[in-house]
């Protein structure tokens, strides 16, 4: 569990630093640590989701130069929430995965906006939603679904070979 936790935090961070700029489409980059936290929180529950979200967010805050604690808070809460709710929903279908990831990304974005606004973030709500939150949420949804497919395929391959 500890190695999985470290892999989630540092693996997500490493992927965010190396892959996210390369995966940029029309100046929109996916939030890879959020995806990793959400997907693993679904499997490992609220404690894992909360702690992994907190640590991954803290790392992102430190790297990006923003207020340290904002992403740690939003990702921690979202990771905890999805870990709690995960056991009650079936999330194996793409029709659930894509809108679910989009919705969670929007919730995380709204949380960040509210916290930053308390500390005088200058951008307007409409602008942030139109140009940052919604495009990134859509991207997260499709990339996350692709990631789920890839994981399922890898697991079935492993089951077949063993």
């Amino acid at each position: 569990m500890k190695s999985l936790f470290a892999l989630t935090v540092f693996g997500g961070g490493v992927a965010h630093l190396t892959l996210a700029p390369a995966l940029r489409v029309a100046d929109v980059a996916p939030d890879i640590p959020l995806l990793v936290v959400l997907l693993l929180a679904l499997r490992h529950g609220p404690e894992f989701g909360g702690l992994a979200g907190f640590a991954a967010g803290l790392l992102q805050d430190a790297v990006s130069g923003g207020l340290v604690g904002v992403q740690a808070l939003t990702k921690g809460v979202v990771g905890f929430g999805i870990g709690t709710l995960g056991g009650r929903f079936s999330v194996t279908q793409p029709l659930v995965q894509v809108p679910g990831l989009v919705l969670l990304s929007i919730v995380e974005g709204l949380g960040r906006f509210v916290i930053l606004k308390l500390f005088h973030y200058p951008a307007a709500f409409g602008e942030v939603m139109t140009y940052v939150v919604l495009p990134q949420a859509l991207y997260n949804g499709f990339l996350g679904a692709a990631l789920v497919f890839a994981l399922a395929w890898a697991e079935s391959l492993r089951a077949r070979t063993s």
Binding site: F54, G69, A72, G76, V77, F80
Partner: peptide, 14 residues
Amino acid sequence: VLLGSIVLVCLVLI
């Protein structure tokens, strides 16, 4: 308690 701790630590940091 875990959720509360996460929120508290973040708010203190901010």
